[in-house]
Design a protein around this nucleic acid. Sequence first.
DNA 1: ACGAGGTCCTGCGAGC
DNA 2: TGCTCGCAGGACCTCG
Length: 286
Amino acid sequence: MPELPEVETIVRDLAPRLVGQALKHPKVFRPERLKGTSRQRFLRILDGNRIQALTRRAKHAVFLLESGHRLVIQPGMTGSLLVADGQAEGSRWKQVVLAVGLEDGGQLLYRDVRRLGTIRLLDQRQWNSYTERIGPEPLSEEFGPEEFARRIGSTKQPVKKALMDQKRIAGVGNIYATEALFLAGIDPSRPGNRLDRAALERLYHAVRDVLARAIAQGGTTFRDYRRGTGEPGSFQLSLLAYGRGGQPCVRCGTLLATTHSIDGRATTFCWRCQGGPAALGSPPGA
DNA sequence: ACGAGGTCCTGCGAGC
DNA sequence: TGCTCGCAGGACCTCG
C-alpha cells in the first residue's frame, strides 16, 4: 500500500522519464475516481499540457503542469503509476483508471486494483488550500522533534492513530507507524499525551529512520505495489513488526501479537519490548 | 470534540 | 472441486 516511501520511489523513478513531456489524448476509464472536477474539464486541461515537475506530497504524486494546474494522484491502497512502451499487459487493462499518451510514444498509466485511490486536478489556489490541510513532511529538514512532540504529544488519541493522521504528520500509514512504534519501544495504544519527552524523541527518530530506510530500499511490496520501474521494493525484507504476528521478536524472542483494537487496523507489537497495549490486559500465558 | 463504526472496492486464501 | 466469507485498509463519512 503506497505510503510515503512508496510514492517517493515511484516519483523518483518516473520523473526523469516524464518531466518536460507534453500529454496527449488522456483517457479516463473510471470517472468516479475523479474528485472535484468533471471528466470534461479534466480532459480539456490535461490534453496538450506539459509536465513541468513531478514531486511527492504526503502519499500523493503531484504533477506540476505548464498551465499551473497540478494533477494530484493519491494511490490509496493499491494504486500504481507506470510508463508503458508499446502494448501494456492485456490482462491488467481492466484495472486502468487513467491513461495519458506521451510525446515520446510511451503511455503514462494509473492502475488501481481496489479503486480506492483518487485523482484531482487543482489550480494554484485549490492546491494551496489542499496542501495546507495536510501536516508537515516528516523528512523535511525543518521538521524537528519539538514540532513532532507538539503534534503527537498533545492528543488523547492512541499514538498509532495520531501518527497515521495525515493532518498531524504527512505520509505515515499502517506499515511505518507499526514499525516506528516497535523501533521506539512504545505501546501503540498509549495516548499521545501520556508519552514522556524521551519517548517522543525516540519516536521522532524512529519515524524518520524507518521512512528513510524504506525509501533507500524502494518501498515495501506485499502484493500490488511496484516501483516506477515495474520492480518490487525490498523493504518488506527489513520489516521487524508489520506482518510478523506470531513470529518471535527480533530483540527478545517473545512471540509478536496482532490486535485490531486500535482504529480497527492490524497492529503487530511485542508485549515485552513495547509493554502493551495496556488496554488489552495481559499477554497470553502471563 | 471525540470515538466507534460504516462505506467504498477487489483479490486472495482459509475453511467447509 | 468449488463455493462463501472474512480480511486487507486510506480516506472520508455519520452517529451518539
